[in-house]
Amino acid sequence: MSDETVTGTHRIELDEPKCVAAGQCVMVAPEVFDQRDEDGVAVVLDETPAAELLDDVREAVAVCPAAALRLVAL
């Protein structure tokens, strides 16, 4: 991989209306995701996460039951 030291090669997109607040993303990548206090809907803490977090983010995207998350290469 050539992007290992670069920060912000990818952006996370959250389709908020789809989120069912299952919290899978928070469990997989707590550095990147949180849940809103009022209704549990996901919050992206870091939209362009550093390269070392990307594996966790990819897993979060894969396990999100609502297909509400996307990771887009910049």
Binding site: V20, A21, E38, G40, V41
Partner: peptide
């Protein structure tokens, strides 16, 4: 089903958030 489901679920899921 959504969107009714989404609305109802947001009302009950607070106690089950990760935090």
């Amino acid at each position: 089903d959504a969107p009714e489901h989404t609305q109802l679920r947001r009302v009950v899921n607070l106690p089950f958030t990760v935090k």
